[in-house]
Nucleic acid binder design. Structure first.
Lengths: 340, 340
DNA sequence: CTGAAAGCGCTTACAG
DNA sequence: CTGAAAGCGCTTACAG
């Protein structure tokens, strides 16, 4: 055989080769490529030219091993089968990928135990930052996070304490806004229909009930909560159950649009006029909600914006900025449409 | 401060410490933990006990650097904002994660150029395998894949040649099945409405038209194709346009369920009875399709199964199995419901 | 079945 | 602003 591959290694050009071609030491080449500011601009140019000429691509494993820190950001979400988090992930990606960060996506399926296992596992990759969903997790998860001291930002909810960074909006306030909207439409016999009972779903319900209490109609309100995963099908079933048990309900707040869509289909099948007989309000404002029959009134949540701001905030923390804001409230918007 | 962190490194227990505690050499410890079969079972037990006692977690960066191969599998999908690929990803994860593989998800947004950039980027992580969507990519992408020789499996379509591994079903046949179904319902003036024109959408259309040609009704058929991303909204718009230009159309095949859902809403708004006046058939059978009004007839695609089988096949290739099947046809199923 | 040595490709820490 | 040396934590290749 004429030419043998190196018996070990990747066969790709290395930093040493780049340095040699550029006529500088390896460490200077390393600094130049990482844009360390102390390097002579002339040398930076030489190194970058050499890297380009050789088609040099840094080896992330070597970099991580040497620095004990990867260029990976871990993002933990409770679900993927959910437009919500996809939009958030895309926004995160759009901020971090161009800056050379890798994104490791972990789906914990609304399970704290699964999240704990993911945290344990991903920490072994020495991520340079983490983006987490909310604040509700196991004690062990919390200890792991604190022990490693990896910079992190919590998404979707706002922290009540000053020791963590968060980007989101007030789930409680959003629930209260829905309640006041239904009341303004003259509805008095109201229901909260919820599934997939995570902390945020509970908070929405709390805000909803708080506003009903303030209006003096809480005692007439109904709450249906099931732990099952949300789905269009479940929405139809819960609506049917609600109608059977409480035929005089005149307004429903669904904890998410999926449930509301299913209820909309079921209402139509049963000939229950929406909004005339019952008013529907959803949550999240999925793209489809503007097109259903009738079009669904819903709370538009800033999903993409949460991802974008959380990623930017994390970037500041990774960069060691002390001036980073602790908490960013992005708000929400009630989209009033035909269903109520 | 009482205790300082080590100035370099992770501070985590290392393989050397495990080996020392177990009373064997480092390389024996390494082999024991990787389940290399040649190690004395007694030593394996000692090493595993020591690892457990120390809370040892392998350092993936060191492993990757030393072996020039990571434990990561790259999965490239054209979209995430799409129930389809989420289910596939979940199935892949369920197979690979328990076996210690990390999954790097790349979304190329139906762009071949973006896919090429992702391939280039992810290859620097030295993945041990890749799961790709379909066969339609740039020349440069193909060269990169061939050059590195990373084991790979193509998903969703079936390969026509014998040199690549694939798991999927015949998109063309599925299109033909839809056509024959519409014909069996007495429909003769048919349309194919498609967006997001990737290779698979085109193949479905080809199969559809082939069957129409065989039935002698192709010359009366209409095709609407737009390159825009699919959405519920677009489905409504395309349906409206079709109705205006070709009011006598009596059956429509939508290239995916999202478009069909939008058309269903639009039909209802305009008072066009489905299926009486026009029959609708979708593609993919999203969970919602069984619940719309009317319930949508659609082709159920084996999305989760594709992910599962592709991951298993890849595992065989990674393990060096020569007996792995080249191509796995998982088929599809026409779910006949109310819309046609 | 086991091990000492070398090496993977980078960055850190220190010195100048 | 630059560099020689050491080291990160593993696995490979070879020898026994």
């Amino acid at each position: 055989m004429i030419r043998r591959e190196a018996s070990r290694g990747t066969g790709r050009p290395t930093l040493a080769e780049v340095a040699k071609l550029a006529g500088v030491s390896q460490i200077t080449a390393s600094r130049a490529l990482r844009n360390v500011p102390t390097v002579d601009p002339e040398n930076v140019a030489k190194v970058k030219d050499a890297a380009k000429a050789l088609g040099y691509v840094p080896n992330p494993a070597a970099r991580t091993l040497a620095s004990a820190r990867s260029q990976s950001v871990v993002v933990l979400v409770p679900a993927l089968a959910n437009q919500l988090f996809i939009e958030t992930l895309e926004a995160i990606h759009a901020v971090l990928h161009p800056r050379g960060f890798e994104i490791l996506i972990g789906n914990f399926h609304y399970s704290k135990e699964e999240e704990e296992e993911l945290i344990r596992n991903y920490l072994s990759f020495q991520p340079c930052g983490m983006l987490l969903t909310g604040f509700d997790r196991t004690e062990a998860s919390l200890r792991l996070l604190e022990a490693t001291g990896v910079p992190r930002v919590h998404m979707m909810e706002l922290s009540r304490t000053e020791d963590v960074h968060s980007v989101g909006f007030s789930q409680e306030d959003a629930g209260a806004v829905v309640a006041r909207h239904l009341l303004s439409k003259g509805r008095r016999r109201l229901a909260y229909v919820a599934a997939q009972l995570d902390a945020r779903v509970v908070q929405r319900g709390e805000g909803f009930k708080r506003a009903l209490a303030e209006a003096g109609v809480l005692d007439r309100a109904v709450e249906i909560k099931v732990a099952d995963p949300s789905s269009v099908e479940l929405g139809g079933e819960l609506f049917q159950a609600l109608l059977n048990d409480h035929p005089d309900i005149d307004g429903i707040f669904f904890c998410n649009d999926d449930l509301a869509h299913g209820a909309l289909f079921e209402a139509q099948r049963r000939g229950v006029p929406v909004p005339e007989r019952i008013t529907f309000v959803g949550f999240n404002d999925l793209p489809m909600s503007a097109h259903t029959v009738p079009r669904l009134t819903s709370i538009r949540t800033p999903r993409a914006e949460v991802g974008e701001h959380a990623a930017r905030l994390l970037l500041q923390l990774i960069g060691g900025s002390e001036t980073a804001r602790k908490s960013i409230d992005l708000g929400f918007e009630l989209m009033v449409r035909e269903s109520g």
